[in-house]
Amino acid sequence: MRLSILDQAPISVGMTPQGALQASIELAQLGDRLGYTRFWMAEHHDLSGLACPSPDVMLGIIGSKTTNIRIGSGAVLVPHYRPFKIAETYNLLATLYPGRVDLGIGRAPGGSAEATIALSNNFLDNVRKIPETIDELLKFLYNDFSKDNIYSKIKPTPVPQSSPKPWLLGTSKKSAMLAAEKGMAYAFGHFMSSQDGPEIVRKYYNDFSRGYDLSKPEVVVAISVICADTSEEAEALALSSQLWSVKRGKGEDIGIPSVEEAISYAYTADERLLIERSKQKMVIGNPQAVKSQLKELKKLYNADELMIVTITHRSEAKLKSYELIAKEMLAK
């Protein structure tokens, strides 16, 4: 089974943003040693508890501190940027780290309405133009403009020997259909979708058309996972991220709270219901239980790969979670 890592650079209570970003680097290095396939960083803008607005900056550092693991964005939020600039940036990374760079793209705003306006005051119009934007981006990556197109005169230099691999990220049937139409690999966010994920992925498989460098469909499913020595410990660790979600939903600007705070917090009935619903999307347990659930999800989605996102208060607990999973599922 291929397993990968999606990191959101979470900031815990008592941790600085610098500490959170350093923890991301350490996680990538651990993933590299343990045999995870890829390490993606997410893009967020002025969101409480998350430290990374620019995955490409972090990937430049992470690539220099790792050896084998693929590195990529999960995702570049393309409505904020022009395709040529995206292609330049990821061609540069692919030149530095040949054969290791993924270019995941998405269409979410990644932040509040105010942050979105500050980044791109015509965001909604840019979202509507996503299919054309993807076409333009792919043509830049694969040097495929017709001779009469003005862009045929320029290249997003440096041009690497091996282009960054494009992925489309999404949580809906619309994104699956677009990935299939464009012949792109597809990453489905199981951990953040309330829709019928397996049916959405089936739609992608059924509608796939050959792309520039992809002859058959390829699917990664991103899943929220917390693993510990015992299921009871894993359940307690999971409370931190669950309380964080509750407090963010109330507009509180906080980092990831401690397990002790999460256990003692006075939850309302509605908040407890929200937590129970969120747990249904998570995989929580000891290594054997996590392995069983992940294998079941992989089969359910017919996925080529699972991508794990883990949020805990203590970095040590997060690293151990990935270590336990690797020992159970990636050990040779």
Rank of each mutant, 00 (worst) to 15 (best):
V283Q: 10
I284S: 02
V283K: 11
L214C: 06
E305Q: 07
G189K: 00
I311V: 15
S231C: 11
N286C: 15
V201M: 02
F191D: 00
W244A: 11
Y204D: 09
I256V: 14
Q242K: 05
D229E: 07
I256T: 11
A234G: 09
V259G: 03
L294V: 05
K295L: 15
Y267P: 13
L294F: 03
C227G: 00
G197P: 04
Y204L: 08
K281G: 12
L214M: 06
D270N: 14
D229A: 12
A180Q: 03
S278Y: 11
D229M: 01
A187N: 00
E233F: 02
D253C: 08
G197D: 03
L273Y: 10
T310C: 15
S292V: 13
V219G: 05
E305L: 08
M192Y: 13
K295Q: 14
S215P: 03
L300V: 10
R210Q: 08
I284K: 01
N302Y: 06
K279A: 14
G183D: 10
A234Y: 05
D229C: 01
V201K: 07
E252Q: 14
M282E: 11
A185L: 07
G285I: 06
E181L: 06
K216P: 00
M192R: 06
E218S: 02
F188G: 03
L243G: 05
S240V: 04
D304N: 13
S224V: 05
N286H: 10
K203M: 01
Y212V: 10
R277C: 12
Q242W: 00
S231H: 02
R277T: 10
S278P: 02
Q280G: 13
Q195D: 13
Q280T: 13
R277A: 14
P287N: 07
D213S: 10
A236R: 13
L297Y: 13
L237M: 08
A180V: 05
S278I: 06
L300K: 15
I226S: 06
L237R: 03
L306R: 04
Y301F: 14
S292T: 14
R248P: 00
G255A: 09
D229Q: 09
D213L: 04
A234D: 08
S258W: 08
I275G: 09
P198C: 03
K291M: 12
Y205E: 11
A238S: 10
D270Q: 15
G251V: 11
T310K: 02
E261P: 01
N302T: 15
L274P: 04
T312I: 12
G197I: 02
Q242C: 05
F191C: 04
R248A: 06
A185M: 08
S215R: 05
A262F: 09
I254Q: 13
E199N: 12
K295I: 15
L243H: 02
R272P: 10
S209G: 00
D270T: 14
C227I: 00
S209Q: 12
R248Y: 02
V246A: 03
G249N: 05
D207A: 13
I275C: 07
S193C: 07
H190F: 02
K216M: 00
M307F: 09
S264N: 15
T230M: 04
Y212S: 07
M307Q: 10
I256K: 04
G285S: 08
Y205A: 06
A234P: 03
L214D: 01
S193D: 04
T312E: 15
G249F: 06
D207M: 06
M184T: 01
E260H: 11
